[in-house]
Design a protein around this nucleic acid. Sequence first.
DNA 1: CAGTGGTCTAGACCACATG
DNA 2: ATGTGGTCTAGACCACTGG
Lengths: 266, 266
Amino acid sequence: MSLDDIAKTETAGNGGAADTSRWLRIYRALRSEILSDDLPSGSQLPSEKQLCERFAVTRMTVRRALQALQQEGMLTARKGVGVFVRRAPPCYQITDGNRFVDNITADGDTVETQTLSIIRERVLAASAASLKVPRGSRVIAVTRLRLINNEPTFLNCKQLPAALFPQFDAVYARRQSVDDVYRHHGIESYRRRETRITGGFATEEEARILGLPVGAPLLRSRSVNEDDTGTRIEYSNGCWPLTAVEFVFPGPSENLQISRHGGVQG
Amino acid sequence: MSLDDIAKTETAGNGGAADTSRWLRIYRALRSEILSDDLPSGSQLPSEKQLCERFAVTRMTVRRALQALQQEGMLTARKGVGVFVRRAPPCYQITDGNRFVDNITADGDTVETQTLSIIRERVLAASAASLKVPRGSRVIAVTRLRLINNEPTFLNCKQLPAALFPQFDAVYARRQSVDDVYRHHGIESYRRRETRITGGFATEEEARILGLPVGAPLLRSRSVNEDDTGTRIEYSNGCWPLTAVEFVFPGPSENLQISRHGGVQG
DNA sequence: CAGTGGTCTAGACCACATG
DNA sequence: ATGTGGTCTAGACCACTGG
């Protein structure tokens, strides 16, 4: 009796009521076992072959279910090793207040900053509008990756008007600190002018850098900072794995409004 | 000569350098054709069988690429019909200001509000803390679906302290307007106390209601509103398809801070 | 009815990690 | 050397849509 025959028997035994596909039933079964801690965080699942036997399906069907769970971040697969229940990804609150690094380390977490590139380029139209700098002027573009507890967590590209920070390289090289650069150029404090939050999907490059599968969902933040005089000093474009962060915006503010904007796709 | 032989010839001809999988090459090819408007928005793709011939692979391989593009919202498949390039999903800015509906319709878009359920229940711990109501007190939970241009776009569950709005049902029934309920109970204006934005994945129920695949990525917003006296009148929990909305938070405010919070998974 | 996408089978070969 | 997950084949049956 083949697996196919078994499957047909199953559904036939139900009076032909196969209301859901087999991979979805496997998805639900595994999902509930993970959520109920029957499959604890960090534990290894049975191999795909064993799961095939358990659910009486072929590997492709098991993998269809596993794939869905991986996309939701509940499972991670390591080639040659196995499939594991992913530890609940740490989630960080971002609010107004102090600096990035201080509060991470205060909670006993480690923060590593990798500077991936520093390039000077002519400002693009979108950045020019946000920074209120003339078209064609130059910006310093700093691309950095933040690893929290050795997990790539935040990929970020800051653009700073080059004219404002002539000593950027020398100061930044010391501690990889943009705040240091600000202070060195007479900016003791600054404030967030605007923050925009959207969702999106990882480009192949972003996926590679963040260690995510191709097309993984992301949270994107775009923000503008200005100094105490209202001069815009930074335009920042960042992305996080979808469940790695929570943005907290305290009120009070006015009533809620919604208005048409235009697509973000592409 | 079988398809398999052709494929082997291809990679062998490259000096054995098959650095990427076949489905990923198909993914890239289709993706670039969509982005370059070679496959215009709304147009129908060749059938899977035709794509198999074009790329010299089997259906499962084509489908692996199509699946990735569907997860990113670039394609939608209609059973029995075909696969289509998805129209760039409308993206709405949410900022502080006026009411939800007014600004949609002002842009010529249609808004439909479906009230899915109105139930009274004892407040849960999380909601009680946000609303600052006693544990065990009662809330009115209103679950609503907003369709913009007939697309399910925003699924929302508001919780209101039941004691504050004794006339809720009668007033709400008239126009499905929570603002009407507020006004009827003497609340002329209110303000956003806090907004939290996270990413997540659709439950099966959310996916069904929003017309998304199981486990589709979402943007989630949780917010608390209070009236002019500081009384918290609403705790709202909503979700949007990942690319359907952009949240805009205007400054100025203090410097940025990040602090540890805890997982959101599950 | 023919054509479409959704699901599934029963294999296979590969790269990778571990003992 | 063995077992793992990643990929792929060459079929098949089904439900659904449309002419």
